[in-house]
Design a binder for these strands. Structure first.
Length: 587
RNA sequence: GGGCUCGUGGCUUAGCCAGGAUAUAGCGCUGGCCUUCUAAGCCAGACGCCCCGGGUUCGAAUCCCGGCGGGCCCGCCA
C-alpha cells in the first residue's frame, strides 16, 4: 500500500533533516513499534555512542526539533525511541482508496522475472501421505505469493520415472493379478482401520507395488526378472523405458487427483527419463570429466571432489557415473537444473530436509560447470505421527486422501449442526460444496501455518481444529462480511475518514495497510508462514470491529462502514486465494 | 563418529535472518456475553528460569562458543 511507504519516507526525511541541523552524522533505521502508541519508531540507541548522549536525550531532542506535518500527526519520545504517529484520516482514506482502486487484484508491478518453483515431485510409486504433504502446500502457496510480487511464475513437478523403484512398480502392475492385489489392498485397509481400500488409481497400483516388493525378496526368479528389466532400462531399451513411463503416468494420474483436491495444479511436468533420452545427462558427464576436480575410482566410476566447496567429511566425493558409465539420479538432476535455468531467471526447489546435502552438492557441481546462478532451496521437515516416522511399508501412515476425507466430513457435520440456527436453510448440495471448501482449506492452513523447518507431529485433533488460529476462522470472517454486504444491498462507497473513527475501525485499517508488505515477505522472502499469521490478525481485527460497532443500522456512518467491510472482504478473499483456500460466501 | 537443523506457558506456535519498549497467538483451563449485522464469534482471567552454561554488548529469546535433548543426512539408491 503506497500510503505506508509515503509515511515512512516522510518520517525518514524529517529525522534526516533534524539530525543534519543538529550536526550529527549518524545512520538510523525505522521499525514497526512493538507498542501500539506509535505507527513507526526510530530507535536512538545506536546513535548514543557517536553523539555521546543517552538514547533518551537524543530522542527527546529530536522529538522537540521535529514538527508534525503531512502524514505525520505527532512526534514523541519514550524509552530511547523516537515515535511517530500517522494521521488517522489520511491513513483511512488512503488505504481504503488503494484497495478499491486495485479492484481486488493485488499483483504488484510486473518485474519480468521468470521464476520457476519446483515442488511436490514425489516418486510415482504410491499415494501422497501426510508426511510429505507440506511440499505441495508450501510450494503452491509460495508460487501464488510470487505471482503477486509481479513475477512470471511456473510451477513444476519433476517426475522420477527412472530407477529400481518404478521398475518394481511396473513389474508389479504387469505381473501381479488383480485378485492378489485386491486381497493385499483389503488387508492393508483393515490394518489401517478402514472398511475397504479406496478405489483410486494410486491406491490400487501401490497394492501391486507392495506385493511385488515382497515377491522380489522371497522369490529369486522374480528378483531375476526385475534385475533384467532394470538392465534393459539402463541399456536404453525403448520398450522397457516406455512401459515404465506409462506406469508412472497412470500413478501420477492418481496423485494429480489428490493434489487437485487441495487446490494444487502444476503448470508443467518434467520427466527424468527425458534427460537420458535427449543426451543432456550424458553432456553433463562429459563436461564434468573435463573438470579439474574430476577423478575416477579403481572400478572406473567418475566423481568430482567437492572438498573445496565447503563439503566436509567423507561426503566430498560426488559420484556422477557408475563404473559401467551409466548416469545416476544426481547426474540427471544436474541436467534438469541446467534445463530449468535455460528457461528461468530464478529457480526455487521445495525439498524435504533429507535433500540438504544433495542440494548443496548440486550447487557445487553447478559452480564447477561455471554457473553463477544457483537454485534456491526451500527445505521443510517431515510430518511424523505420534508413534513415529511415517512408513508406507509398515502401515504407519496417514494418506493425504484420508485426511481430506476426514476434514471434509468433519466440516460437513459442523455445517449440518448449524442448519436452522446460525445459517439459513442450505441445500444438501450446498452443504457438501461448502464442507469441501472448509475441510480442504483447514488442511492447507494448518500445514502452512508453521515454519517449514520446524518438525511437525500430525495429530487428528489439531488437523481437525476449526477454531481460533485455523483456516475456517478466516473463512468464517469472509462469510460474515459477505452476509453483511448481502443484507446491505446497494450502497454508495464512502471513504470519508471522519466517519471511521472508532479505535476498532482504525485498527482494522492498519491491518489492511500491511498486506502489500506481507506479500513481499511471504513471496520474495520465501516465508510463506507469514501469510496465515497475517490472515489471522486481519480476521481478529475484523471480528473485534464487528463486535464493537454496528454497521447496517449505523445511520450516517453506514456507507463508510460498509465500505470498510467490503475492503476487508476483498483483502481477505485475496489472502485466502493466496493460501489456495476457497472463500465461502456463507458457512 | 562427522555435518545440518529444531528446542519459547500443560500442548501447539510467532518473534531469531537485519539484538532494543510490558515475549505473539491458538488449543486446553476459569468466568462473562446470542430478543441486535453468522457464537466456527467477542470480552476478562490464570498459566513463561524463551533447554542448560559461558561469552560479546549500554542492552540477548535473537549474535558467538560449549553442552544436553529431538529430527534429518553422510550409497557406484532415487
Amino acid at each position: 500500500m503506497s500510503i505506508m511507504n509515503e509515511f515512512e519516507n516522510q518520517v525518514r526525511a524529517k529525522v534526516a533533516d533534524a539530525l543534519a541541523v543538529m550536526g550529527a552524522d549518524v545512520q538510523f533505521v525505522t521499525e514497526l513499534p512493538s507498542v501500539d502508541t506509535a505507527d513507526l519508531a526510530v530507535p536512538c540507541f545506536t546513535m548514543s555512542k557517536a553523539l555521546r548522549k543517552s538514547p533518551q536525550a537524543i530522542a527527546d531532542e529530536l522529538a522537540a526539533a521535529i514538527e508534525p506535518s503531512g502524514l505525520v500527526s505527532s512526534v514523541s519520545s519514550c524509552n530511547g525511541y523516537l515515535n511517530f504517529c500517522m494521521d488517522g484520516s489520511a491513513l483511512v482514506k488512503g488505504v481504503l482508496e488503494d484497495i478499491i482502486g486495485c479492484g481486488g487484484c493485488f499483483i504488484a508491478e510486473k518485474t519480468g522475472q521468470r521464476v520457476n518453483v519446483e515442488h511436490t515431485s514425489t516418486n510415482p510409486t504410491g499415494p501422497i501421505h501426510v508426511g510429505r504433504a507440506r511440499n505441495p502446500i508450501i510450494g503452491d502457496t509460495l508460487a501464488r505469493c510470487l505471482k503477486r510480487c509481479g513475477h512470471e511464475v511456473t510451477t513444476e513437478y519433476y517426475v522420477n520415472d527412472v530407477g529400481k523403484q518404478v521398475v518394481i512398480l511396473t513389474w508389479g502392475v504387469n505381473n501381479v493379478s488383480d485378485e492378489v492385489a485386491d486381497a493385499e489392498a483389503e488387508e492393508h485397509a483393515r490394518n489401517a482401520g478402514h472398511e475397504k481400500e479406496r478405489d483410486k488409481t494410486d491406491h490400487r497400483l501401490v497394492a501391486k507395488y507392495r506385493v511385488a516388493n515382497r515377491m522380489m525378496e522371497s522369490d529369486p526368479e522374480v528378483q531375476a526378472q526385475i534385475a533384467d528389466m532394470l538392465r534393459r532400462f539402463e541399456a536404453g531399451d525403448r520398450e522397457v523405458i516406455d512401459t515404465v513411463r506409462h506406469t508412472a503416468e497412470i500413478m501420477l494420474g492418481g496423485l494429480k487427483e489428490t493434489l487437485s483436491n487441495i487446490n494444487v495444479e502444476l503448470d508443467r511436468y518434467t520427466w527424468e527419463s527425458d534427460f537420458i533420452a535427449d543426451g543432456s545427462a550424458r553432456d553433463v558427464v562429459e563436461r564434468l570429466k573435463g573438470s579439474e576436480y574430476a577423478g575416477q575410482t579403481d572400478d572406473g566410476a567418475w566423481f568430482v571432489d567437492l572438498k573445496d566447496f565447503g563439503i566436509q567429511g567423507k561426503n566430498t566425493k560426488f559420484t556422477f557415473t557408475r563404473s559401467d558409465g551409466t548416469t545416476l539420479y544426481t547426474t540427471r538432476d544436474i541436467a534438469y537444473h541446467l534445463n530449468k535455468f535455460s528457461r528461468s531467471d530464478r529457480v526455487i526447489d521445495v525439498l524435504g530436509e533429507d535433500q540438504k546435502l544433495g542440494s548443496k552438492q548440486l550447487c557445487s557441481v553447478l559452480e564447477i560447470l561455471g554457473h553463477d546462478k544457483l537454485p534456491e532451496p526451500l527445505f521443510y521437515s517431515f510430518v511424523s505421527l505420534p508413534e513415529g516416522k511415517m512408513s508406507t511399508r509398515k502401515g504407519v501412515v496417514v494418506y493425504l486422501d484420508d485426511l481430506i476425507d476426514e476434514a471434509v466430513a468433519h466440516a460437513y457435520d459442523e455445517i449440518k449442526s448449524r442448519v436452522g440456527t446460525r445459517n439459513s436453510d442450505m441445500t444438501e448440495e450446498r452443504m457438501r460444496e461448502i464442507a469441501r471448501i472448509v475441510g480442504t482449506g483447514s488442511i492447507r492452513y494448518n500445514i502452512v501455518r508453521v515454519q517449514p523447518e520446524k518438525q511437525l507431529v500430525f495429530k487428528w485433533s489439531e488437523a481437525l481444529n476449526f477454531d481460533g488460529n485455523s483456516g475456517p476462522y478466516l473463512q468464517y470472517v469472509h462469510a460474515r462480511a459477505c452476509s453483511m454486504l448481502r443484507k446491505a444491498g446497494e450502497f454508495s462507497r464512502d471513504t470519508d475518514p471522519s466517519k471511521l473513527t472508532d479505535p476498532m475501525e482504525v485498527n482494522l485499517v492498519k491491518k489492511l495497510a500491511r498486506y502489500g508488505e506481507v506479500l513481499r515477505e511471504a513471496g520474495d522472502g520465501k516465508r510463506v508462514h507469514m501469510l496465515p499469521a497475517y490472515g489471522h490478525e486481519l480476521a481478529v481485527a475484523f471480528n473485534q470491529f464487528y463486535a464493537a460497532v454496528s454497521v447496517l443500522d449505523a445511520g450516517p456512518r453506514r456507507d463508510a462502514r460498509l465500505t470498510l467491510v467490503e475492503c476487508t472482504r476483498t483483502v481477505l478473499a485475496d489472502v485466502l486465494d493466496c493460501l489456495g483456500m476457497g472463500a465461502p460466501e456463507e458457512m
